[in-house]
Simulated assay, not measured.
Amino acid sequence: MSVAQIIQDAWNKQAKWLVLLRPLSWLYKTGFVLNKSLFKSGLKHTYTAPVPVMVIGNITVGGSGKTPLLIQLVKYLQLQNIRAGVISRGYGGKGPFPAMVTLDSVPNTVGDEPCLIVQSTGVPMAVGPSRQASIELLLSQYELDLIISDDGLQHWALNRQLEWIVLDKNRGLGNQRLLPEGYLREPVQRLERSTVIEHAQNPQTNLHMHLQVGKPYLLNPAFDAEEIFDAKQDFYAVVGIGFPQRFYETLKSLSVQRFQCHEFPDHYDYEIDDIQFEDANPIITTEKDAVKLLPLLKQHPEFNRDIWVVPVEAILSDECYTLLNQQLKQLGLHKD
């Protein structure tokens, strides 16, 4: 098990030994505050795009439901005839950057989440470490009304007009400590200055979302006939996301009880040996992992094990859409 996985497991369990990392958390906070102050004072350059920018992010490390939320918002904006484009860091991709993301893009080049976003929505999207370069690339090819930044909440070099923070109440804030003692990227007080979307099955606020689980489908169907998903099978749960426990709960909601967990780091670059097992039991995984496994299967046509994919869709409260429409109207973007 890697150091990153050990710390991730300790965060989830709120292990007491994490207090030993407090000096590093103090160092992280010092650097964080200094960097932010340099941007606010103008000593570091900030970029203002020619169209409004909306950042969707979180203050925690690991999965919060941010990507399904972004996908749902993009679909809603498309229905409203608002021309949206998306930018992302493209984490896990090797570039060259900036790069446009297309239906033919692969995770090794542009990252796994960008591939999933474009495959789900067809939205114009560019990725790269420089958000400014990504925006300029997008605008050189498309006329857009709004830029949505996938993550980048702490990227102070990019000015933004809207911020939505996803707060996963199922996971919580852990020990509420900054990295690396805890999994907070910013102090909890940051939630007071942005729109917070509560991700929970039993929400306590009006602005909330939950993930609705869809029907599992085969990533590598062997026949043209429809395959039948049998929840009573033994599965290998292969997952490389920030908070794998959420996926295990999703499996239980599908009445999948017998599965062996095989966890990998977030944005993991799979190899074919990672999904080879001694018996013929099927694999079950997330859509985010599936976009990385599919190119691997194309490279290894001899692989014949079933891989089931569990899709999820973000369901937002009506109040989320009401607020979004108000915010868009303030930016002159709401189209009646």
Results as ranks from 00 to 15, higher is better:
Ala133Lys: 11
Phe277Ser: 06
Ile272Cys: 00
Asp273Glu: 11
Thr286Met: 14
Ser130Gly: 06
Ser37Glu: 06
Val3Lys: 11
Val33Leu: 13
Ala126Gln: 08
Gln176Arg: 10
Ile315Lys: 11
Thr205Asp: 03
Thr286Trp: 04
Asp112Tyr: 05
Ser317Asp: 05
Met209Leu: 13
Val19Phe: 04
Ile283Thr: 03
Leu218Arg: 09
His45Lys: 14
Glu287Ser: 04
Val312Ala: 12
Gly152Glu: 11
Ala10Gln: 10
Leu116Pro: 07
Met209Asn: 07
Ala15Gly: 12
Lys298Ile: 08
Glu186Ser: 07
Gly111Lys: 08
Val196Ala: 04
Met209Cys: 14
Pro129His: 06
Leu139Cys: 05
Arg89Val: 08
His208Cys: 12
Lys44Met: 09
His267Tyr: 03
Met54Arg: 02
Ile59Cys: 08
Leu158Ser: 00
Gln327Tyr: 08
Ser134Lys: 03
Cys320Thr: 12
Leu173Pro: 01
His208Asp: 03
Ile87Gln: 03
Pro68Ile: 13
Lys232Tyr: 07
Lys13Val: 04
Thr102His: 10
Leu219Tyr: 05
Ser317Thr: 02
Ala84Leu: 09
Pro52Trp: 03
Tyr142Cys: 07
Gly57Thr: 04
Arg177Ile: 07
Lys252Ala: 10
Leu294Thr: 05
Thr286Asn: 09
Val238Gln: 07
Gly92Val: 06
Tyr183Cys: 07
Phe243Tyr: 14
Ile228Arg: 15
Asn175Arg: 09
Phe303Val: 10
Ser149Lys: 07
Asp289Gln: 14
Ala231Trp: 04
Asn281Phe: 00
Thr48Cys: 12
Arg89Cys: 09
Ser88Pro: 05
Lys16Ala: 14
Pro244Asn: 05
Trp164Ala: 08
Leu323Arg: 13
Val110Gln: 08
Val106Gln: 13
Val312Gly: 09
Ile307Asp: 02
Glu271Asp: 13
Val53Ile: 13
Gly62Phe: 10
Asp145Leu: 15
Gln212Leu: 15
Leu73His: 02
Ile148Thr: 02
Ile59Trp: 05
Asp306Arg: 08
Asp336Val: 04
Gly31Gln: 06
Asp274Cys: 00
Tyr47Arg: 01
Leu43Pro: 00
His155Tyr: 10
Gln80Leu: 14
Asn206Glu: 11
Pro295Lys: 00
Leu294His: 11
Tyr236Asp: 04
Leu179Val: 11
Leu254Gln: 00
Ile7Trp: 03
Ala237Phe: 12
Gln212Ser: 15
Asn35Cys: 07
Ile147Val: 07
Trp11Phe: 12
His210Thr: 15
Arg22Met: 14
Phe259Tyr: 10
Tyr91Thr: 02
Ala49Tyr: 06
Gly332Gln: 03
Gly57Ile: 07
Phe32Cys: 15
Asp336Pro: 01
Asp112Lys: 09
Ser149Tyr: 01
Lys29Cys: 02
Phe277Asn: 09
Leu218Ser: 15
Tyr321Met: 00
Lys94Trp: 03
Phe303Asn: 12
Ile117Gly: 01
Leu179Glu: 04
Asn159Arg: 14
Pro114Tyr: 02
Ser2Val: 10
Val101Thr: 07
Gln257Leu: 09
Ser41Gly: 01
Gly31Pro: 07
Leu20Phe: 15
Asn81Lys: 09
Leu294Val: 05
Lys232Gln: 15
Thr205Trp: 02
Asp112Pro: 04
Ser88Ile: 15
Gln80Phe: 10
Gly31Trp: 04
Leu139Arg: 02
Asn35Lys: 14
Glu186Met: 10
Ile228Gly: 00
Ala157Arg: 09
Thr67Phe: 08
Gln212Asn: 15
Tyr270Leu: 00
